[in-house]
Nucleic acid binder design. Structure first.
Length: 684
DNA sequence: GGATTTTCACAGTT
DNA sequence: CAACTGTGAAAATC
């Protein structure tokens, strides 16, 4: 064997007789001698001859033993990292060839235990150059990797919110320029703690735990989860110097419209190689077949799939661009062309593998197109274009293309929770702040939160707390005050939809950035007596105390700062009230349950001072792509996959029956009174 | 829009 | 040759 094995297939699990469960294509790398220059090389380009002169390394050992070695490595590093969180273990009798990682419920190390890392952590480490491909992930293993990705991104996003708030606190003082790039700082902090994922292997193909359609707001976030390792460059690759045969191999690209010669048709991309631009991003010299350009050509040569991430301009809030993972492509063609500038550029034709699920960028464009769509052009299934009847400042759509169930139409829409009157009476006076011109650093409401505002200037929740005090009707500050985030209503177009899996569900037509306010969970708060009557009737109510305290997950920075203390002030209020959502409710009522939710409950006070009756405000803790289902942890066990609204629906049926019975009673009583007749015997 | 960042690849040196 | 070190590129960000 006088050549290389450019990519080792790492089978984490092979389903017996499975054929179609995984989309990752199986590519057997072509192993061909490599001593002639690619025919398309134009004479004008500088040929990086060293790439070709490197002596061939000694032949690799037999694939089986090498495979074993790598899978052992792969397994141990992942297992160590995952075991840290206590919800994953390696099966002791796992097949050493499979390297299987399976989640288990280890009662001694429950998920959520966080190991405090020493400061300074691991030394800066280089990326590995070993190519592996992860195939045939078992569903459990996929979940476990997804959990790892989720925790990592949660830390990234909440650390960013935390640092931004820190800068905003004294922005009058001269903030060094480098601190304004908070995303870079976050990545650096996480790297120092060894929290970047997939550093120990170069993964060809899909990254375990990253789904098509996942959205990112920062390039560094792509680096942290291992999707694309370059901070700025568009082509990520194993460098020639580290490759076993001296040839670079590309693994992922970012298509973000920075090159004038790109042509993006979705499934087919004509991608321009990099280089040849001046600092104004103008093409000024010919491109060369080196670095990433050569790597892409080599990936075509070996038939190695390339991850594609699209950077898309997004007319949303703060960040101007979102990055969405669109799946795997193969390079099918490459040529040297004269670009619009008149200079030579390399072009690569990339074709998307089929059966990969819808592209995230297509979904993004679709929901954007709905903004300006004429009413009659809307897709079938939109039963209502605003469930709230303009009570919310954004429409709440209602979509059902499955059956004729129009249940959500029959409830009165309740934008904010109604508390019993006695809640408002108690100590309503003198609770507000006096910041007439808007709340600045010193504000009595901020003091109630422990001297800081709970949100940054973009309205992102800095970190979860037991309770948050916002400014309210008793304050002197204007309604635009920064400390009124959850009173300003919806900021995203939400949609209640019928789902075969979960009955009802809620999704957004906009990208929701992690830390943003979504909506309130509203209902009519019952007095103790009312609740007892409801309970006696066997009716189910929403008990806020049953929501687990997930707020702590947003902003748990103990992995970064060893002296980090979880916020304990204001202390958790006792929540012994119940909410009735049987007549009036809002969109939140239709959210599905999940044990790894993307939405959390944050308790907030603003219109009264009674800490036993806070509002249940819902915040995103992940970046949620449009059309992805929102989920909440209702505190149910995992076996319970039903939804609140399902139980409520059952309750509706019971109530309807009772109502009919009462009506019948009335009619019968009237008949008896009027006609003196006895209907249905003496019982009435 | 320019200044400011980081990371990575690469090449040269110790 | 392994380990540094310095340089330059890079579709980033504010």
């Amino acid at each position: 064997m006088d050549s290389i094995v450019p990519c080792l297939e790492l089978n984490l699990y092979t389903e017996p007789n499975s054929s179609s469960s995984i989309n990752t294509p199986k590519i057997t790398p072509k192993i061909e001698p490599f001593d002639e220059h690619p025919p398309f090389l134009p004479p004008t380009t500088h040929l990086p001859t060293h790439q070709y002169r490197i002596a061939r390394p000694p032949p690799k050992p037999e694939v089986s033993s090498e495979f074993n070695r790598i899978s052992e490595l792969f397994r141990s590093t992942f297992a160590q990292r995952l075991q840290k969180y206590g919800d994953v273990a390696v099966l002791p009798d796992a097949d050493p060839n499979s390297g299987a990682i399976v989640p288990c419920n280890n009662p001694e190390t429950q998920a959520g235990n966080v190991v405090i890392s020493p400061r300074g952590g691991r030394k800066q480490d280089q990326r590995s150059s070993e190519l592996v491909r992860v195939t045939d992930l078992r569903p459990e293993a996929h979940r476990c990797f997804r959990g790892e990705i989720r925790r990592t991104r949660l830390l990234f996003d909440s650390l960013r919110a935390f640092l931004i708030a820190d800068i905003e606190k004294d922005r009058d003082s001269l903030t060094p320029q480098r601190w304004r790039r908070v995303d870079l700082k976050v990545a650096q902090l996480m790297k120092n703690q060894g929290l970047w994922l997939y550093r120990d292997k170069r993964i060809v193909g899909a990254i375990p735990g990253v789904s098509i359609g996942d959205v990112f707001f920062f390039r560094m976030e792509l680096c942290v989860v291992g999707l694309h390792g370059q901070a700025q460059a568009g082509i990520d690759y194993v460098p020639a110097s580290q490759s076993s045969n001296g040839e670079p191999v590309a693994t992922s690209i970012i298509v973000s419209g920075g090159y004038e010669d790109d042509e993006d048709a979705g499934d087919v991309i004509i991608y321009t190689g990099h280089g040849g631009q001046d600092k104004h991003s103008r093409q000024v010299v010919h491109q060369k077949l080196e670095c990433g350009n050569l790597a892409l050509e080599r990936s075509m040569h070996y038939g190695i799939e390339v991850r594609v991430i699209r950077g898309i301009k997004y007319e949303g809030r703060a960040p101007g661009k979102v990055y969405v993972y669109d799946g795997l492509y193969r390079v099918t063609d490459t040529w040297f062309d004269v670009g619009k500038s008149g200079f030579g550029v390399y072009k690569f034709k990339l074709v998307r593998f089929e059966n990969q699920g819808q592209m995230g960028s297509v979904v993004l464009k679709f929901v954007e197109s709905l903004r300006t769509l004429q009413l009659d052009a809307w897709p079938k299934g939109y039963v209502s274009l605003d469930l709230s009847s303009k009570k919310e400042n954004m429409p709440v759509f209602f979509f059902n293309d499955i059956d004729e169930d129009h249940e959500p139409l029959y409830y009165q829409y309740l934008t904010t929770t109604r508390f019993p009157l006695h809640v408002y009476d108690r100590g309503a006076k003198g609770i507000g702040c006096d910041c007439v011109g808007g709340c600045l650093d010193v504000c009595s409401c901020a003091n109630k939160n422990g001297g800081e505002f709970a949100y940054d200037l973009n309205g992102i929740l800095v970190r979860g707390k037991p309770l948050i005090f916002e400014c309210g009707p008793h304050c002197q500050c204007p309604p635009t005050c920064r400390n009124r985030v959850s009173q300003k209503g919806l900021r995203n177009r939400l949609e209640v939809f019928r789902s075969r899996e979960t009955g009802w569900g809620v999704r957004s037509l906009d990208v929701i950035q992690a830390g943003s306010f979504i909506c309130e969970f509203t209902g009519i708060v019952l007095t103790q007596e009312q609740a007892e009557i409801f309970t006696m009737n066997g009716d189910s109510l929403v008990h806020p105390s049953r929501f687990p305290g997930r707020w702590a997950e947003w902003g748990d920075l103990s992995q970064i700062f060893s002296d980090y203390v979880r916020p304990a002030y204001p202390s958790t209020p006792p929540l012994d009230f119940a909410m009735d959502v049987s007549r009036m409710r809002n969109v939140a009522c239709y959210m599905s349950h999940s044990s790894s939710p993307n939405v959390i409950v944050q308790l907030v006070l603003f219109d009264h001072n009674n800490i036993s009756f806070p509002h249940l405000m819902l915040f995103a803790i992940e970046n949620i792509p449009p059309m992805r289902e929102l989920s909440l942890d209702y505190g149910m066990t995992d076996e319970w996959t039903g939804k609140l609204s399902d139980t409520l629906y059952a309750k509706e049926l019971r109530m309807a029956q009772q109502f009919l019975l009462i009506l019948l009673n009335l009619v019968v009583a009237l008949c008896r009174q009027k006609f003196g007749i006895c209907v249905f015997g003496s019982r009435f």
